[in-house]
């Protein structure tokens, strides 16, 4: 021991619970988009459709929590008024709209059955920008040397693997009629959650300093929760469960695991004072800021689901009946 601190000042978290919601939703959106493309290649367009719709819903929802976490959201256009290539966040400001736009347009092309050539380009853009989004979200946090819990090799790996698991989980929750496609998704979920569990264990257990740091602001029960309920359970359910219900349970557990991991690491890292005299009080689950971000994000996902359903049920058939559409388009 060096001594004790006699003076303490309060400091606020710079990234609020909205940031946790954003990192959850955008990670799941990209993973769902990657799953859609993989299923399209392996099983065809029809099998990939549910995953693509989930990707569209989540992609449409992601900008809301991101903007809400800015303390000056009305100035978001400033991201585009100049170049800041040294900032990972600036790259993200371009990658995110590219991913959202290509995902929504690819969904539109798929729903209408038109623009086959453009659809391929759009899906390519969706996959490319989606991989960019995964890279930037992991890189944005991992480069911050002042946050040792983020600035290491383990955190970005677990962040990415939990994103993949939550995306596969979200698609399974929505339901995948194609049985072979559902099986592939369960395997993807089991693989990413299992790998996430191994990576989490290696990251924290292999480095005593990291384990000490993690445990300083994240009780064992929180980390155990992430590992057991958020990673091991969905992996086991996806591997050994049978039927749509167990697949949905696995999906819910995977989404919960990704949320719990982000919550633990975003609040845990920000609660650690770098000058050892500042007090950061982590938001409680019942805090207005937490409830606002949860209800706001859930509301946005519900609204996006309605919009995508309207696209599927009304807009796409109307477009299919357009002047250029022949009888084949009607059947598509």
């Amino acid at each position: 021991m060096t001594g004790i601190d006699l003076v303490s000042v309060d400091q606020d978290f710079a990234w609020r619970p909205w940031a946790v919601a954003y990192f959850l939703v955008i990670g799941a959106a990209v993973a769902a988009a990657l799953a859609a493309q993989a299923l399209r290649v392996l099983r065809g367009a029809a099998a990939a459709r549910p995953a693509l719709r989930v990707a569209a819903v989540l992609a449409l929802s992601a900008p809301l929590p991101l903007l809400a976490d800015l303390h000056q959201p009305a100035r978001f256009l400033n991201f585009y008024l100049g170049a800041a290539p040294s900032s990972v966040m600036w790259w993200g400001a371009w990658l995110l709209p590219a991913f959202v736009a290509t995902t929504l347009l690819a969904t539109l092309a798929d729903a209408t059955g038109r623009w086959a050539g453009a659809g391929r380009v759009l899906r390519l853009g969706m996959v490319g920008s989606g991989l960019g989004v995964l890279t930037y979200t992991a890189g944005e946090t991992a480069i911050v040397a002042a946050r040792p819990l983020w600035h290491n090799a383990g955190f970005p790996v677990v962040l990415t693997l939990t994103a993949l698991a939550s995306g596969a989980g979200a698609v399974l929750i929505a339901g995948v009629p194609d049985r072979a496609g559902a099986r592939l998704l369960r395997m993807a979920l089991a693989g990413s959650a299992g790998a996430g569990l191994v990576a989490l264990g290696l990251w924290l257990l292999a480095d005593p300093d990291m384990a000490r740091l993690a445990l300083a602001d994240m009780p064992v029960v929180v980390l155990g929760h992430v590992a057991a309920l958020g990673l091991a359970l969905p992996a086991l359910l996806a591997l050994f469960g049978r039927g749509a219900l167990s697949a949905r349970f696995a999906g819910v557990a995977a989404v919960w695991g990704a949320l719990a991991f982000r919550w633990a690491l975003f609040t845990g890292a920000q609660a650690q004072s770098r000058v050892e005299t500042a007090t950061y009080t982590p938001p409680a689950l019942a805090d207005p800021a937490t409830l606002q971000s949860l209800t706001g994000t859930a509301g946005m996902i519900a609204l996006a689901a309605v919009l995508v359903a309207v696209l599927d049920l009304y807009l796409a058939p109307a477009l299919r009946r357009g002047p250029q559409a022949g009888p084949r388009a009607d059947k598509a």
Partner: peptide
């Protein structure tokens, strides 16, 4: 700074 339970 290694500190023990104090003001914080």
């Amino acid at each position: 700074v290694e500190i023990e339970a104090g003001a914080r």
